[in-house]
């Protein structure tokens, strides 16, 4: 079972890498930030799988913090943009 969890975590890691391509290319800031949102969600999944594979329950708390921070980063991005600090 452990190797299965790690294999799935590896697949999710590959999807994160592919998401980074969109962060690099994305024409607008919205695209980049959306791809970062994708990275946040898949990192939560990876952490939960690794918590099972390595039997480290602390990783679940890390996943909880990641889920919180994804919301904060997106909200801060939109607020700062709406305030007119960033150019288009």
């Amino acid at each position: 079972m452990n190797s299965f969890y790690m294999m799935i975590a590896l697949i999710l890691l590959v999807t994160m890498l592919l998401g980074l391509v969109r962060v690099m290319r994305g024409p607008s800031r919205v695209d980049r930030m959306l791809a970062a949102q994708l990275l946040g969600t898949s990192s939560v999944g990876i952490l939960l799988l690794l918590a099972l594979a390595f039997e480290q329950s602390a990783l679940r708390d890390v996943a909880l913090v990641f889920a919180l921070l994804a919301a904060v980063s997106g909200l801060a991005f939109v607020r700062v943009w709406a305030a007119g600090v960033l150019a288009k």
Partner: peptide, 30 residues
């Protein structure tokens, strides 16, 4: 532990809904 998993998923769902709505608004305005 089950409760913690439910909490993580609920948090991700709520944050994704809020952030996606805001970003969708900005993308539409653009």
């Amino acid at each position: 532990l089950v409760l913690k998993y439910v909490m993580i998923w609920g948090l991700v769902l709520v944050s994704a809904a809020v952030v996606s709505h805001l970003m969708g608004q900005r993308a539409y305005q653009l």
